[in-house]
């Protein structure tokens, strides 16, 4: 079976024009491949570039060099050279991302935040809301909160909203950045279940897990991200 997502000699550096053009290399020569149904945990010390790698995979950061090959609509696609429109299509259909922090949109109810990616994929609004509600309830977010915008929610509640939004569509490839960082034991168990269910359905998962207990439970293997010699 071919990987759901893989990188070839992926490199990334930042050039800070406002600091006299200082160049900060973060990644170089990253070769990572993840099969459908496989969960790979990124490992390495803080500052090694785990989050940068995730953001490159999602297209939030542009790849500096190398290729990011994603299986999308039955063919391999190089995300490193995909234009913005194609990238939007990929994010709508194939590639999901759960970041650590929820980007709150003013006034939008929690339920609609979770339902939105489903609607974007063509699901009727009411069906999307029903699915969103079920997932939020599973993540122990009381239904009284579903109609409220999450701006005033606690960190843990916001993270669960984020998780529901990321897991709802069932993307073939899912990127998880510290999905359980501010969750209690009960909710960690729910997330564990979600990840296992996604894997069983063939989702390829790449994650950053500081919670080693969770990591050891879900990750099939570790992928070491080596820190570049920064500020040389």
């Amino acid at each position: 079976m071919s990987p759901a997502i893989r990188t070839e000699a992926l490199g990334k550096s930042f050039t800070l024009h406002l600091q006299g053009g200082t160049r900060i290399p973060v990644l170089s020569g990253v070769d990572l491949a993840v099969e459908p149904g496989e969960c790979v945990a990124l490992a390495g010390p803080s500052g090694a570039g785990k989050s940068t790698l995730m953001r490159c995979l999602y297209g939030n950061y542009g790849a500096g060099s190398g290729r990011i090959l994603l299986r999308h609509r039955g063919a391999e696609l190089d995300l490193a050279s995909a234009d913005a429109r194609l990238m939007r299509e990929v994010r709508r259909e194939t590639l999901g991302y759960v970041s650590q922090f929820l980007r709150v949109i003013p006034r939008v109810p929690t339920l609609d935040i979770v339902a939105e990616p489903l609607v974007a994929r063509g699901m009727p609004r009411e069906a999307a809301r029903a699915r969103a509600a079920a997932l939020l309830t599973r993540l122990n977010l009381p239904s009284a909160l579903h109609a409220l915008p999450p701006a005033t929610f606690s960190g843990g509640e916001q993270q669960r909203v984020n998780l529901a939004r990321g897991f709802a569509p069932g993307y073939p490839v899912l990127l998880l950045d510290e999905p359980t960082a501010s969750l209690d034991a009960a909710n960690r168990a729910v997330v564990l279940g979600l990840i296992e269910a996604a894997k069983a359905q063939g989702t390829a998962i790449i994650g950053i897990f500081h919670d080693t207990e969770i990591r050891d439970r879900v990750a099939d293997r570790l992928f070491e991200v080596h820190p570049e010699q920064a500020f040389a």
Binding site: F14, T15, L16, H17, L18, R55, G59, N60, Y61, G62, D83, A84, M87, R88
Partner: peptide
């Protein structure tokens, strides 16, 4: 500079965009 909104804002390449 142009591209995906979040990429341009989170990973700006041009000096002026960074500013």
């Amino acid at each position: 500079e142009q591209g995906l909104t979040d990429r341009v804002l989170d990973d700006p390449q041009h000096e002026y965009t960074q500013l």
